[in-house]
């Protein structure tokens, strides 16, 4: 009995010492995943993900709390990059990139309250008190914050129509090789 206890203790002790030495020898700094993810995020702090700003979302994604697909402005592209970073697989087929949208001001309704101007995360709305506001197309990210802030419904988001420069070929529609396209019940 004593011998058994002693020998197992001996093995354990030996392994412990060896591992202790190895741990010191092969020490690795913990990586700053949150910071890296935050660097990838759009940074417009739009809050569409439901977290307070991009850093909150980055922390949630890093801890696995939020899916990599949670950022609508980042779209598929960001989801793929994040999935690669985190080493997870992601199914983007369900993600519909609705195409870029852009805010527009209906001039008759605008009362010049500057609420949209204050809430815009990218300073894309210009205007002053009691004056009709306007949207700078290039700076607008389509985050819809201003749409919610506007008291008179003067701001609406509309999709950006494709031009010859932005048009891309659609994905070919194949009848026979598309993934699970069976009618309900057929798979079972």
């Amino acid at each position: 009995m004593l011998i058994a206890v002693a020998s197992v203790a001996l093995i354990g002790g030996f392994c412990g010492v060896a591992l202790g030495v190895a741990a010191r020898r092969f020490h690795v700094e913990p990586d700053s995943m949150v910071a890296e993810i935050e660097a990838l995020m759009p940074g417009s702090q739009c809050g569409q993900c439901g977290y307070p700003g991009c850093s909150g979302a980055a922390a949630a994604i890093a801890s696995g709390e939020a899916p990599v697909t949670c950022c609508p402005p980042g779209g598929k592209a960001l989801a793929l990059v994040l999935a690669e970073k985190l080493g997870v697989t992601v199914d983007t087929s369900g993600m519909v990139d609705e195409g870029p949208k852009i805010a527009g001001v209906t001039e008759e309704l605008c009362i010049g309250c500057t609420k949209c101007y204050k809430t815009c995360p990218t300073d894309a709305v210009i205007g002053a008190v009691k004056q009709v506001h306007a949207v700078i197309r290039d700076a607008c990210t389509g985050c819809a914050k201003c749409e919610h802030a506007c008291p008179t419904g003067a701001i609406t988001l509309s999709p950006v129509a494709p031009t010859i420069q932005t048009w891309v070929w659609p994905k070919p529609q194949s009848q026979t090789t598309s993934r699970p396209a069976q009618p309900a019940g057929a798979a079972a």
Partner: peptide, 26 residues
């Protein structure tokens, strides 16, 4: 102490794996 075989083998294997894990992580 043949009866301690499984126990002690697992101990040794676990330590080896732990070691490999450290090396790979580095």
């Amino acid at each position: 102490m043949g009866y301690l075989r499984i126990l002690s083998f697992i101990l040794v294997i676990a330590a080896t794996v732990q070691f490999v894990e450290m090396v790979i992580k580095k």
